[in-house]
Simulated assay, not measured.
Amino acid sequence: MNLMQTKRPATTSNDAALDTIAYAIGESAIGKILAARSDIGVYAILIGSDADALEQDLGDRFPGNVVLEDETTLRDDLAAIARFIETPAVGLDVPLDLRHGTPFQQRVWEVLRTIPCGTTITYTALARRLGQPNGARAVATACAANAIALGVPCHRVVRTDRTLAGYRWGVERKRALLDKEATI
């Protein structure tokens, strides 16, 4: 195991335990994927082209946590993620840890998880579904804060005119994911 980052000091017996996140990087049809897991479940799925940039993104998103590279622990999660990218109809059946979002972000993410594979929704329609008819920008911000790509399928959210925009991991990846899902 490789210790990537420790931002908080070690605890004493009177302190709460440090939050530890294990991570590993694998390959997929849309680039490198970083999966990270807490004791509860998958804490992050990040997509990119560069392993160092993915590690940096993980550290930046979760300062104050101990982040450990652990390929053995994440092997099954990485395989499930890669399988989902190739064959979205199989679903992505991994436990998720959504605690890192604000209450509003968590509500957005939970609703996103109900959007069926092969279906899209607009930012405005998603805001309405949340009871926030004027909240399309807040929904877009919550989507941008999502650290669990694919597990929280923010790639299924599109503009009102149905064009693609605003995907943290690139519009080309968003298009590839939606195209793959459309073949279901």
Rank of each mutant, 00 (worst) to 15 (best):
T102V: 13
V157Q: 11
E69K: 14
R175N: 14
G135M: 12
L130I: 10
A24L: 06
G166E: 09
S49Y: 01
R107N: 11
C143Y: 06
G64H: 04
R128D: 15
T102Q: 03
A145Y: 08
A51C: 01
P153K: 05
V158E: 06
M1A: 12
D50V: 01
A145F: 01
T20D: 06
S13Y: 03
I121T: 13
Q132K: 09
V66Q: 15
A51I: 00
R37M: 12
L112V: 06
A80K: 10
A138T: 00
R159F: 10
M4K: 05
G59E: 06
E69V: 13
Y123A: 13
T114P: 08
S49D: 09
P153F: 08
E55A: 15
A176K: 06
R173I: 15
D50N: 14
G151S: 10
Y167N: 09
C143Q: 10
I85G: 10
Q132V: 02
A36D: 00
R61L: 03
L58I: 03
K180Y: 10
A142W: 01
K7G: 12
R99C: 12
A36P: 01
T122W: 12
E71D: 07
H100Y: 13
D39S: 11
F62W: 07
C154F: 05
A142Y: 00
K32C: 10
T122V: 07
W109Y: 13
C143H: 12
R137S: 15
I81K: 09
C117T: 14
D57K: 04
K7C: 11
A138F: 02
H100T: 15
T122D: 08
E172P: 00
N65K: 14
A176Q: 05
T11E: 08
L126F: 02
I148Y: 04
G170I: 15
V67P: 04
V171S: 05
K174E: 15
A44C: 00
P95F: 04
L177V: 05
R162H: 15
V157T: 14
G31I: 04
A16H: 00
E55C: 07
A127F: 08
V171H: 07
I21C: 10
L68Q: 06
A89M: 03
R107H: 08
D97H: 01
D76F: 03
Y23P: 02
T102S: 14
V139P: 01
H100V: 11
M4R: 02
A24G: 00
V139S: 11
S38E: 10
D161F: 07
L34V: 12
I40Y: 00
R129D: 13
L34K: 04
T122H: 08
T20H: 03
T6G: 11
Y23C: 07
A125H: 07
P103Q: 12
Q5H: 14
A10H: 05
A140S: 13
I25M: 05
A142L: 02
A22F: 00
A17L: 11
E86A: 14
D93S: 12
L68G: 09
R159Q: 01
A136E: 14
V67Q: 07
L18R: 10
A24Q: 07
W169D: 15
R129H: 13
A22P: 00
Y23M: 09
A147F: 03
R168P: 07
P88W: 02
R128W: 02
L3I: 12
C154Y: 08
E55I: 13
L54W: 08
T114N: 15
R61Y: 01
R8H: 12
I184T: 09
K7I: 11
